[in-house]
């Protein structure tokens, strides 16, 4: 039982980060029907930006904020420099995938050039030191902070999408660009904001994961991208509540399979399941939450 609860704690903290990252991926898909493969690189850059701030001795909330803004700016840049140009040219959807991966490659190269290829860690902070033992379950203050931060970020996003005019605009564009134009939504600006939000979430997720595992490297983005795509599939493409549920689910499944299943084939089972989900219920496990563009 203790092990079980311990895994729940570990799984929730990991899953909350997956959820934050995947929401960004799925948000872009919901609005534009494209996958931005550079999201993983934004995640990596966010982790480095946060690390630099932390190394300066500045407080971690500031590190998170800088990563948020930095990831968001990169997201906007990817829209302005790549996706918007491709849309205007009527380029094929494939081009967006190839281009976004090239952008990711570029950023990984820059990160290697600037920060080196070695793995870095965040400087010691008080949060890792504080650990509670509740009935044999170890809970780090850091884990609690990660989960709370992730939940706050998701809450802000949810509020923005549901209650603000920006959110309404995003939802309208996601429903149909033509309808959005007819009702007077500035489509270009709305798409730009969507990319900012997605990039910001990726950057924030980078700081959270960097803190939680104390590992920052130029190659962390690719790994995360695979997780993000997985969560997208679990939750259904473009489905935000689905991405939240899928993120936590993936975190829990990963942690539990390490604890209970012999590590061999654990990921294979996971991906096999995803494969099956795609075949049996391609709209994801949690479909029915949100209207999706046909």
């Amino acid at each position: 039982m203790t092990t079980f609860l311990q895994q729940v704690v570990n799984g929730l903290s990991l899953g909350s980060i997956y959820a934050v990252f995947a929401i960004g991926c799925t948000l872009i898909f919901g609005v534009l029907n494209i996958v931005n493969l550079a999201q993983g690189a934004f995640f990596m850059v966010g982790a480095y930006l946060g690390l630099e701030i932390a190394l300066l001795g500045l407080p971690l909330p500031l590190a998170l904020l800088v990563a948020l803004v930095g990831g968001g700016v990169l997201g906007m840049a990817s829209e302005l420099l790549v996706f918007r140009v491709l849309r205007l040219r009527g380029g094929h959807k494939w081009m967006g995938l190839v281009a976004s991966l090239a952008l990711a490659r570029l950023l990984v190269g820059v990160a290697q050039e600037v920060f080196g290829t070695a793995v870095h860690g965040y400087p010691p902070n008080p949060f890792t030191a504080i650990v509670w033992e509740i009935g044999g379950v170890r809970v780090q203050l850091l884990q609690v902070i990660v989960v709370i931060t992730a939940v706050i970020l998701m809450g802000i996003l949810g509020f923005t999408l549901q209650k603000t005019s920006v959110g309404r605009a995003i939802r309208t564009v996601a429903f149909s660009e033509d309808v959005a134009r007819i009702v007077g939504v500035e489509v270009g600006r709305t798409i730009l904001i969507t990319f900012f939000i997605a990039g910001a979430l990726a950057g924030a997720a980078g700081v959270l994961l960097g803190l939680l595992f104390n590992v920052v490297s130029p190659f962390m983005g690719e790994h995360m991208l695979v997780k993000g795509l997985t969560v997208m599939i679990l939750g259904g493409l473009g489905n935000i509540p689905g991405a939240v549920a899928g993120g936590f689910l993936l975190g829990l499944v990963e942690v539990f399979s390490v604890a209970y299943v012999s590590s061999a084939f654990r990921d294979a089972i996971g991906f096999g399941l995803i494969f099956l989900i795609l075949l049996v219920k391609p709209t994801g496990l949690f479909s029915g939450f949100e209207e999706r563009r046909a």
């Binding site: 790549v82 281009a99 490659r105 190269g109």
Partner: peptide, 10 residues
């Protein structure tokens, strides 16, 4: 490489 691929695509 990233820049060149971007250039070709764009």
């Amino acid at each position: 490489m990233g820049l060149l691929i971007l250039a070709v695509v764009l």
